[in-house]
Structure formats: C-alpha cells, structure tokens
Nucleic acid binder design. Structure first.
Lengths: 219, 219
DNA sequence: AAATATTTTTAGACATGTCTAAAAATATTT
DNA sequence: AAATATTTTTAGACATGTCTAAAAATATTT
C-alpha cells in the first residue's frame, strides 16, 4: 500500500501536528526525519498528490483524514509491537523502540488484530503511551507532570515525556517504573528538585529535569 | 546490512542450489523471484561485487560461504516467525508464509534469539521444515515420500513437499496434519492412489499426486 | 522600507532495483 | 558444421527516495 518512507513521514507529521496544532513546516519535518529540507519538499509533493496531506508552498503542511488514518495505524502497530517485545520477549522498556520501528511497517491486518488479541488488547505500551484501537480511536488519560504536583500530593507513575534510552535507563535503575506509586515529600525551592516517596517505603531525590519528564496519574 | 531484495535473491539461490547441487542459471532465478532475466543479471553483479556469490558470465552462479550464511539466517528467521504465527497467534499453517516473508527481513539479532527462546527453541516450522540453529546448522531428518512406502508400512506425517496454500488447505481439511500416524493399507496398481489408515482409526483414500507431496518419518 | 537572515523550493544529480528491446553468447537441431 | 532456437547480457530508460548547490520566497532586523 504505502512505502515505509511514506508511513514514516506521515507518522512524523502526525506527531508534530499533535504537539503544535498548527501547520507543520518543512524544516521541522526534516528534523524529525533526520533528512534534508529538499528531500522533505520532494516527499511532501508525493504525499500531497496522494491526498494524504494538504500542502501550500512555503506555508507548511497538515494531514488529511486519510493521512491521519495511516499515521494512527502506524502508531498502533508500533505500540502493539513494543508491548509484545516487552511483555512476551522480555525486552527492557528502553530496548523496544528501534525494533518496533521496523516491525510497524509489516503489512497484515490479520497479524495486528491477532497480535492485539494475543496481548489481551492492551490499552498502553511499555512507555505508558495509549495504543490506538482498530477503529483509530485513542483513549487519552489526563496525566500531570510530576514537576507540577504540590507537596503532599500522590499518584501513580503512568508515562514519560522524554523517550530517550538514557532517560528510560535512569528511571529503570532507580525503580521509577510504570505503575509505581509516588508521593511528593518536599520540593526544593532553589532548584525545584523533588524528594519523593516511592511505593510508600523508599525515599528518592530527583532533579527538576527528571520530574518534568515523568507523567503521573492522580485520582 | 543487506537489503530485502538482496536477502530474497540469496534465499532463492540457496534453495535452488540445495535442490540441484549445480550452478544456478539466470532464468531459474528469474523464475523463483518472479522477475526478468535482465534484472537477475543486474543483481547478480551486485551480489558478486559483495562476494556473496561466484559468477561467471553465461555459466551461472553459486553462493560463497558468506552468501550462504545470509541465506540460512534468512531461512531461520522465516521459519521461526512461521512458528510464532502458528503456535502463538493461531494462524493456520497455510496462512503463515506471506507474513513471514515480510517478518524475515527485520534486522535484530536480539529479536531472533529472544523469539527462538520464547518459542522453546523449536526444531521444525509448521510445515515440518527444519529451523536452522543460530550457528547455521540445519539438522536434517531423513524422510520418505508417502508414495514410496509399501503396503503395510507405517509412520508419522512429518513434512510436505508442495507448500502451496491449496495443498495445505486440502491436507488440513482431511486431517492429514503433522504428527498424525499413518499406515499404508492398499496401493491401487492402476493409478497409484493409496488407501491409508489415519491415527489407527480413520480410513482415507488419497491420489498419488497427494501421496508424492507428503513426507513420512518411519522408525 | 531597505537590508539581511532564514526558510523553502528548484534544478540537476545519484543509488537501488526494475524493465524492454536489441545484441551477444551458448545450446540444439538439421 | 551450418542454421536455428534459447539463454544471457547489454544499453538505455524509469520509479523511488535522497542529496548538494543555487534560486526564490518569506521573515526579521535595522
């Protein structure tokens, strides 16, 4: 149907669009795709010809419904595969992305449906990101940044902002994994670092930089 | 490392080589790859430059050790994925090939090793074909064609020659699946069709055409 | 508003893999 | 062995996706 490259462009544009809400410019796509602006312009024309996005020269781009559908399907596949790799094959949560980046392009609806069922129709991937349903609907849970919680508040670690391996490994090492309960003990007024209680027993001190990248579900 | 296309050529040449033992000519590769002889010549040159095969103009081709290694790795991946699809995702044995054809090109040694372990280091795929080990060694079991068994002989259905969906579906429908025990009751001298006893209870009549495509392990 | 900086597009090139049509080499028939 | 048939290769083209360098458009500074 669509090439790997096309799917990757659509996915990248979709993610940029979700963040900014506005038309996406050539350079930001080039950044996301690790390619050159000239290449982006070329590809944009192709995707525009295929009615997957709307394009006005020099004005940026936004996905059509058809383009968005493909982007979401690709995200769905990616997150289902990540879940498989983590839950079934025991990959660590910082190891799943690169392989899923390949697996997401396998073309077989039956495969994805059966995988979904095999995994028990998971709602979230190993990083806490929601997995779109086969209908393309994404159930978004309202999460707060740990850095935005006040002293005394508590909640459950439910996602990450930064997805880099370095950050994920740091969290893993310090037991700051999905599902852990946390409580804010003290916020340092000087550097905004936070003292937290993990799982009602362990005390941990984290920087504001870290706190700004952890998503918490409060009840 | 190597492109999908390169891996597919190497796999095709490997399989032709296993069958014939001799140098493989351009046309037979074109047939196996469903492409034109001119395209094969082009690709052969590239693979030859990369030292994956030996090539003499007009004389045909045979794989080097390096080429054979890649071919076997690709076969290993293909058969492990087929096993996964069948055993874990409940694909029928005639449904696994096409998806595995895509999955075999995913590049991650860790993935394949973990998949192998997850599946319990299977020795054979859903069609009874041996799965090469990570060291590239293929354990070949000596099997006989059902059509070559004499009256009164018995054994276990352990493989198929023809891998077409039509044939696999026929076998499935008639209960002629891997692991079933069979005994030759009578061979029709006229058309060489065979009356067999399946699992010591059911009597089935199959044509010689079918018998020539079922592999039996005799003790 | 003119000058300058930045972003985006265009033009032309290249790599990979494919093809058709014609030429060359090899195999088979007479 | 010459004629014919078949197989293989070559030449030149095309599609996809990428790039560099230059041109064009837009945004920002003065």
């Amino acid at each position: 149907m669509y090439s790997y490259t096309e799917e990757n462009y659509l996915k990248a544009i979709y993610k940029l669009q979700e963040q900014s809400g506005e038309a996406i410019n050539t350079n930001s796509i080039a950044g996301a795709m690790a390619t050159k602006a000239a290449s982006v312009t070329d590809m944009i024309k192709k995707l525009s010809d295929k009615k997957l996005l709307k394009y006005q020269k020099y004005k940026g781009v936004h996905l059509t419904d058809a383009g968005k559908k493909i982007a979401i399907e690709t995200v769905r596949k990616h997150r289902l595969w990540e879940t498989f790799l983590h839950h079934k094959l025991n990959f660590l949560w910082d190891e799943v992305h690169d392989v899923a980046e390949q697996l997401e392009h396998i073309q077989s609806e039956a495969l994805i449906d059966k995988l979904d069922e095999y995994l028990g129709f998971p709602s979230h991937d190993p990083h806490g990101d929601p997995i779109p349903g086969r209908n393309g609907i994404i159930k978004v849970t309202k999460l707060l940044l740990l850095s935005d919680l006040e002293t005394g508040k508590h909640g459950i670690i439910s996602g990450v902002v930064n997805h880099s391996r370095l950050f994920l490994q740091y969290l893993q090492k310090n037991g700051l994994t999905l599902g852990r309960s946390i409580k804010i003990l003290e916020i340092n007024a000087f550097d905004l670092s936070v003292q937290i209680e993990l799982d009602k027993v362990k005390k941990i001190h984290i920087s504001n930089e870290v706190a700004r990248n952890i998503l918490i579900k409060t009840k």
